[in-house]
């Protein structure tokens, strides 16, 4: 049945891209959390400093985005794999 095979291929394709995203996510987080390195610090005389409330909003905003991203990826990859169950490799004891 060609239609069914197409569906499966598409699904495994999606699965692989989701795993790519799992791999990529920590680097996105690292890059976003290292943005404060560019911020001006009092005393170095480079323009206005960032108010604490903005810094808080940015850092915790990135945190929430990363958590949601990891949650969504778990939903797509981990949970799906657990439901399929059968194609899980046997766990070594």
């Amino acid at each position: 049945m060609p239609a069914r095979r197409l569906f499966l291929e598409r699904r495994s394709y999606r699965m692989r891209r989701a795993m790519d995203a799992v791999r990529l996510l920590p680097f996105v987080g690292l890059a976003l959390w290292m943005v404060p390195l560019l911020w001006a610090v009092p005393g170095d005389g480079q323009g206005a400093t960032i108010p604490m409330s903005s810094a808080l909003r940015y850092l915790f905003g990135v945190w929430v985005v990363l958590i949601l991203g990891a949650l969504a990826l778990w939903w797509r990859t981990g949970r799906g794999a657990a439901e399929d169950g059968a194609d899980d490799p046997p766990r070594p004891r």
Binding site: P36, L37, W39, A40, V41, P42, T49, I50, P51, M52, A55
Partner: peptide, 9 residues
């Protein structure tokens, strides 16, 4: 007193 970003890179 800690109202602005002051962390060294």
């Amino acid at each position: 007193a800690i109202g602005e970003w002051q962390v060294q890179g």
